[in-house]
Write a protein that binds this DNA or RNA. Structure first.
Lengths: 102, 102
DNA sequence: TCTACACTTTGAAAGGTTTCGAACTATCAG
DNA sequence: CTGATAGTTCGAAACCTTTCAAAGTGTAGA
């Protein structure tokens, strides 16, 4: 446990620490789960993720960048749209952190 | 996954999103782990947690309250000292969140 | 080429966070 | 009672975040 980087980790948690950004991330997780169940690739357009979020496009754009800069998601342009995908290695890392017996 | 509360979760992540507060939490986790290995109870005095933190007492007091208010830790007075312990049910909850296959 | 679409950038307002020093409370030992 | 210890509360300074409106970029279709 001594090998983890608090600066990087704190940035990840800060990214998840805003309600709208967290909802964005949860929506993306949910999309991934559905896609996996259907045997499709696990990525997602931005507009599909706005479910229940009451913020404008500039704000979403900003939030997506925060999630990407924190290392939680990858983004890729496909034509007009932006494809987002959760990075599996971060999921592994965070799961391990919370796997400590207390 | 639809049953999780983004408002509460975001508060938890916001609490972990400050570097010093995260270090405090990690130190507490580490203490818990050591205590468990020695068969002792898993709680910890505040002063033991200040390892490597360059902030004053008022700031630490504030950070501990933030972690407690977020529901990450429990605190209890014992004479002059404050005993902190990580809440196992939050660890379970967070582990489950990051256990989603992506 | 013109238009619509999907997102991004910029700049600014409003509000939140982190931290500290100073003063405070509570407990314990002598 | 006195002094030392452990933590808290208050108030303020400096800084960071969230959000939006307006204007901008790049892509695709008519």
């Amino acid at each position: 446990m001594a090998d983890l980087d608090p600066k990087r980790l704190a940035r990840i948690f800060r990214a998840l620490g805003n309600e709208n950004r967290l909802q964005l991330f949860i929506n993306l997780l949910e999309e991934s789960r559905l896609d996996l169940a259907k045997g499709r690739v696990h990525d997602c357009f931005l507009t599909k993720l706005l479910d229940g979020l009451k913020v404008g496009a500039p704000t979403v754009s900003h939030h997506v960048k925060e999630l990407a800069d924190a290392g939680l998601i990858d983004t890729e342009r496909e034509g007009k749209q932006l494809i987002c995908s959760v990075k599996p290695e971060v999921m592994d890392e965070l799961r391990a952190l919370f796997a400590v017996e207390v």
